[in-house]
């Protein structure tokens, strides 16, 4: 089976609805099929990657740590739109650091998150075979 390029677009905040968590589950399930997976975080979706989320007080499952497992699942192309961060008074430093070990580069640890402009993200969207929205 030829590998297709899958893009998951995430535009919702993490805890107000089930979308964010469902998206992550689908990504993990999809990753088992060894497709070429890219994630994009746009609009309120950028909040999903916020550091120091602690859901103990609201009685919800905290799935933020699961993002750190994405590298093990070979999901390492993660794009965050710069404009969405700026509008919310955020920068890359506010996000969970996500890394992966590059098999083709002696397992060097590399950043999975790339903050990109809208124009760059538009190009990334155009390169995909399949786009899934959450």
């Amino acid at each position: 089976m030829a590998s297709k390029k899958f893009l998951y677009i995430n535009r919702r905040p993490p805890h107000g609805s089930i979308y964010a968590h469902e998206s992550l589950e689908v990504v993990l399930i999809g990753a088992a099929f060894e497709q070429d997976v890219t994630l994009a975080f746009i609009d309120d979706g950028v909040y999903q990657l916020m550091q120091n989320q602690d859901t103990g007080g609201v009685g919800l499952k905290n799935f933020a740590p699961t993002f750190r497992a994405l590298g093990d699942y070979d999901v390492n192309q993660i794009y965050v739109e710069q404009e969405s961060l700026e509008l919310r008074g955020l920068s890359k430093d506010d996000l969970i650091p996500l890394t992966y070990e590059d098999e083709d580069d002696d397992w060097a640890e590399k950043d999975s998150i790339h903050v990109v402009s809208s124009a760059e993200l538009a190009d990334i969207i155009e390169q995909q075979d399949v786009i899934l929205n959450f």
């Binding site: 993990l28 990753a31 088992a32 905290n62 799935f63 740590p65 699961t66 750190r68 497992a69 699942y73």
Partner: peptide, 11 residues
């Protein structure tokens, strides 16, 4: 405990 998921068999 660390990732809040049970890993897939490949992982």
């Amino acid at each position: 405990e660390e990732y809040q998921i049970a890993p897939a068999v490949r992982v």
